Computed example of a mutant assay.
Amino acid sequence: MAIADLSDIDHIEALLQASARAGAAMSYSEILLALGHRFTRPKMRALCNVLDVVDRRAAAAGQPELAVLVVREGDGLPGQGWWVGRDAPVDSWTGAAARALVAQIQQRAFDYWGKAPA
């Protein structure tokens, strides 16, 4: 497997679009592995920086956000950076309300990319 540059926005965006077409989220470990990297915190942080760019590009194109598809294995929710970017209070980052919000936003991506040509 070729190792992808963690700053290759187009490649990471395409992976997330494919994930959305498949109707599935990816854990941080899964997306890093798909890029040819093992999980480390520095690599995860580098990925998170790219996820912010991917979402800004999606917003500019009138598309649903995609960073919400990258989640922690333990609880299936996005990490702290995603929540901080939403100006959400810390006590709203977990639990049933958080899962419902994430599911709603993920569904927008699934619906949009499930209908978009590949």
Rank of each mutant, 00 (worst) to 15 (best):
I3P: 01
L6W: 03
D8N: 08
D10G: 09
I12F: 00
I12S: 00
E13C: 05
A14E: 10
L16D: 00
Q17H: 10
A18W: 00
A18I: 07
S19V: 05
S19I: 08
S19C: 08
S19N: 04
S19E: 06
A20H: 08
R21D: 06
R21C: 04
G23Q: 08
A25C: 09
A25Q: 04
S27D: 01
S29P: 04
S29I: 04
E30T: 12
E30I: 00
L32Y: 03
L33M: 14
A34N: 03
L35C: 07
H37Q: 11
H37S: 04
P42T: 11
P42I: 15
M44C: 10
R45S: 15
C48N: 13
N49C: 09
V50E: 00
L51F: 05
V53E: 14
V54L: 02
D55K: 08
R56V: 13
R57A: 07
R57M: 02
A58Y: 03
A59L: 05
A60W: 09
A60P: 10
A60S: 12
A60Y: 13
G62H: 10
G62S: 14
G62Y: 15
P64Y: 08
E65L: 13
A67R: 15
V68D: 02
L69F: 10
L69I: 15
R72C: 03
R72G: 04
R72Y: 06
E73R: 15
G74K: 09
D75E: 04
L77T: 15
G79F: 14
G79K: 04
G79E: 13
W82K: 10
V84W: 14
G85E: 11
G85Y: 15
G85N: 14
T94V: 01
A96I: 14
L101C: 03
V102R: 02
Q104D: 15
I105S: 00
I105L: 09
Q106W: 03
Q106H: 03
Q107L: 11
Q107F: 06
D111C: 10
D111I: 07
W113T: 01
G114V: 11
G114F: 13
